[in-house]
């Protein structure tokens, strides 16, 4: 890594952002707003729907980072499956339709302090560390072909282990939610 040479690179500038950067920042603001609404709204079903907006925006960010395959997996799994599961969970635990005033617990201000401290620390650290680093988006880095080749050539064993994990999770969820027969 020739990080020392990066500041002298005249092809990048702070004040002349490229189109991808502008779109990235705009979509990122949308994602952050949707995530904030997800964790603060009083209406439980609205929280799940704002989660859809945040996860879909993240799929757009993956597309902007030229990771196409991850973007479509994100849309399929998160927006398609996980949010539907969450909505089912909300329905089955009989979440109220209207606003529920006790959605936040009493330690909200403590949580806010912890989150703000973590955000300040992380953002300071990250900005200081990667101030002069640019991503080269010239070639596509995450096409389906490249991902498939690396996944099935170098990552086969973790892949198979994950399939066993998914099977175990499936069986576990069935066992947990099965209702035993009542003895008379």
């Amino acid at each position: 890594m020739n990080l020392a040479a990066a500041p002298l690179d005249s092809t990048h500038g702070f004040l002349s952002p490229s189109g991808a950067e502008i779109v990235f920042v705009l979509v990122g603001l949308g994602v952050l707003g949707a995530a904030l609404l997800t964790v603060t709204t009083k209406q439980l079903v609205h929280a799940a729907l704002w989660l859809v907006v945040a996860l879909g925006g993240l799929a757009i960010e993956y597309l902007l980072l030229t990771a196409e395959f991850i973007a479509w997996v994100q849309v399929l799994i998160y927006v398609g499956a996980v949010v539907v599961l969450v909505l089912f969970g909300l329905m089955l635990t009989r979440a109220p339709i209207g606003a529920s005033p006790d959605a936040d617990s009493g330690n909200r201000w403590l949580a806010l302090g912890v989150a703000l401290a973590a955000a300040a620390t992380l953002v300071t650290l990250v900005v200081d560390a990667f101030r002069c680093t640019w991503i080269d988006l010239g070639t596509v880095a995450g096409s389906t072909k490249a991902n498939g080749v690396s996944l099935f050539r170098y990552w086969v064993l973790p892949f198979e282990a994950l399939s066993v994990l998914l099977l175990a999770a499936l069986v576990g969820a069935i066992i947990l939610s099965r209702r035993e027969k009542k003895e008379p």
């Binding site: 904030l36 929280a47 959605a103 703000l116």
Partner: peptide, 15 residues
Amino acid sequence: CVGLYGVLARRNAVL
């Protein structure tokens, strides 16, 4: 950090 706030502040388990 937004997720961290949500985990600490929310009361409903699904949230």
